[in-house]
Simulated assay, not measured.
Amino acid sequence: MKQIKVDGMFWFIINKIFGLKNRLYNVFIFHRKDIFIRYPAKLSGIKYMRIGKNFSTGRFLILEAIYNYNGIDYSPQLIIKDNVRINESIHIGCTNYIEIGNNVTIGSKSFISDHNHGIYTGEKQTSPLIRPALRELTCDAKVIIGDNTWIGENVAILPNVSIGKGCIIGAGSIVTKDIPDYSIAVGNPAKVIKKFNKKTQKWER
């Protein structure tokens, strides 16, 4: 897996003398001025990503479209639509399909993954005698986050989850099942506690 890591003396000098490190990084890597990924960041499989307009992140982003792991090939699609804002220390890992909708905001220290290390259901399961790092990655799940959704801090979104439009996922939640449109969900596992009533224009339990 090729990895682009932005660090070293060159970027240190650029930052200290010219204050242009982040801007140069985004122009050189993505050839675009409307993407702003703050230093430092680790990006893997850029050619398997589709990033929309006005994408910005905090520091310590890990963005992985995993196309090969332990000699096994994958065909990831990591889609980030327009006006997405991601805060610090976010890890997004994709072996199959992750889609983040328009105008989504994601709080710090959140994790989004469409895969597991190993298979733990069905007929063919992974032995615990195999080191986790050497277990085959699953590649048959999707994660979809709808437009105008706000993901709070320290949220984990696990494989085969769809979060609807206009949702709020409370801080510290672990999302293991689908969340319908215009819902507030919290907890471990995350459960819907309120839905938006379009007639009254209020969030109701």
Results as ranks from 00 to 15, higher is better:
163 I>V: 13
27 V>M: 07
195 K>Q: 15
73 D>H: 12
149 T>S: 14
2 K>A: 05
146 G>Y: 15
21 K>H: 05
42 K>I: 11
92 I>W: 07
44 S>T: 15
163 I>F: 12
172 G>W: 11
111 F>G: 06
162 S>D: 03
57 T>A: 03
162 S>W: 05
18 F>V: 08
195 K>Y: 08
116 N>D: 15
66 I>S: 12
49 M>V: 14
165 K>E: 13
135 R>W: 07
139 C>L: 00
16 K>Q: 13
189 P>Y: 09
195 K>L: 12
79 I>K: 05
105 T>H: 04
100 I>V: 13
196 F>D: 02
50 R>G: 15
24 L>V: 02
31 H>Q: 12
103 N>Q: 07
87 N>M: 08
49 M>N: 07
49 M>T: 13
14 I>Y: 01
88 E>H: 12
63 L>P: 06
10 F>T: 11
143 V>C: 03
74 Y>Q: 04
137 L>E: 04
37 I>W: 01
28 F>G: 00
59 R>M: 07
170 G>R: 13
137 L>W: 02
179 I>F: 03
6 V>W: 06
118 G>R: 14
16 K>V: 09
132 P>G: 11
95 T>I: 08
147 D>W: 02
46 I>A: 08
2 K>F: 02
36 F>N: 15
87 N>Y: 03
57 T>L: 02
142 K>L: 04
15 N>P: 00
157 I>T: 12
25 Y>L: 01
193 I>L: 04
66 I>G: 05
15 N>D: 15
81 K>H: 04
124 K>F: 10
93 G>D: 06
144 I>N: 03
86 I>R: 01
186 V>F: 10
139 C>I: 01
165 K>Q: 11
81 K>Q: 06
195 K>W: 00
40 P>Q: 10
118 G>H: 10
113 S>V: 13
14 I>C: 11
204 E>L: 03
103 N>P: 04
33 K>F: 03
200 T>I: 03
127 S>V: 08
130 I>K: 10
58 G>S: 01
117 H>F: 14
32 R>W: 00
29 I>R: 00
84 V>K: 01
165 K>T: 09
163 I>G: 11
163 I>M: 13
1 M>D: 06
68 N>L: 14
114 D>N: 02
65 A>I: 09
154 N>Q: 12
137 L>R: 06
162 S>E: 15
106 I>H: 06
76 P>W: 06
198 K>G: 03
35 I>C: 03
